[in-house]
Amino acid sequence: MTVRELPVLDQPEAVACCAPLASTVLSEPDAETLARQFAALADPVRLRLVSLLATAEGGAVCACDLVEPAGRTQGTVSSHLGKLRDAGIVVSEKRGRNVWYAVVPAALENLRGALAQR
C-alpha cells in the first residue's frame, strides 16, 4: 500500500486521539514573515551565524569576529549577515569601520513558536 492509499482520515481512532497541532491559523502576513525567515535560515552558514550570535556573551559580535568561526571570507559572512538582517532575524549597528550584529530575540521566539505545538 502506498502513502497515497492509506485511509488515515477514515480511521476514527486517529481522529479521536489526536488533538490539532496548533490552536490558531497563521495570518497571511505572519506566514509571509515566517516563510522569509525560515528561508533565510535554510542555509548552513546562516544557521551557524545565528547560533554564534545567539550564544555571544556580550549579545553583539563584530562581523570581523565571525569570519574564522564561520570558515568563510569576510565578504561571504557579510553577505549572509545581510540576508539575515533583511529577514529581520538580526540587527546591525555600524561602529566606526566595523559592523556589529545581534539576534532579534522576538524573531527567534516567533520561529520557535511556529514550530512548537500550541
Results as ranks from 00 to 15, higher is better:
33 T>Q: 11
52 L>G: 00
83 K>A: 13
77 V>M: 00
36 R>N: 06
98 N>P: 02
88 G>E: 00
23 S>W: 05
83 K>S: 06
92 S>Y: 02
11 Q>D: 15
13 E>M: 15
2 T>L: 14
61 V>A: 13
7 P>Y: 02
53 L>P: 00
74 Q>K: 15
47 L>H: 11
90 V>D: 00
41 L>V: 14
24 T>G: 09
80 H>P: 04
111 L>K: 04
14 A>K: 08
112 R>N: 08
54 A>F: 07
5 E>Y: 09
17 C>Q: 15
85 R>N: 13
88 G>W: 10
10 D>L: 09
49 L>V: 07
87 A>F: 06
9 L>T: 15
78 S>A: 14
38 F>D: 08
53 L>C: 02
7 P>C: 10
103 V>H: 00
44 P>H: 05
95 R>A: 06
81 L>D: 00
71 G>I: 05
44 P>M: 03
50 V>G: 01
3 V>I: 12
107 A>R: 00
78 S>N: 07
44 P>S: 10
100 W>Y: 13
106 A>P: 07
50 V>C: 05
75 G>A: 03
56 A>D: 03
53 L>D: 00
10 D>N: 13
91 V>S: 05
99 V>H: 07
105 P>K: 08
32 E>M: 12
108 L>V: 02
64 C>G: 09
5 E>A: 15
20 P>A: 09
20 P>G: 04
52 L>D: 00
82 G>N: 01
31 A>P: 11
85 R>H: 07
39 A>E: 06
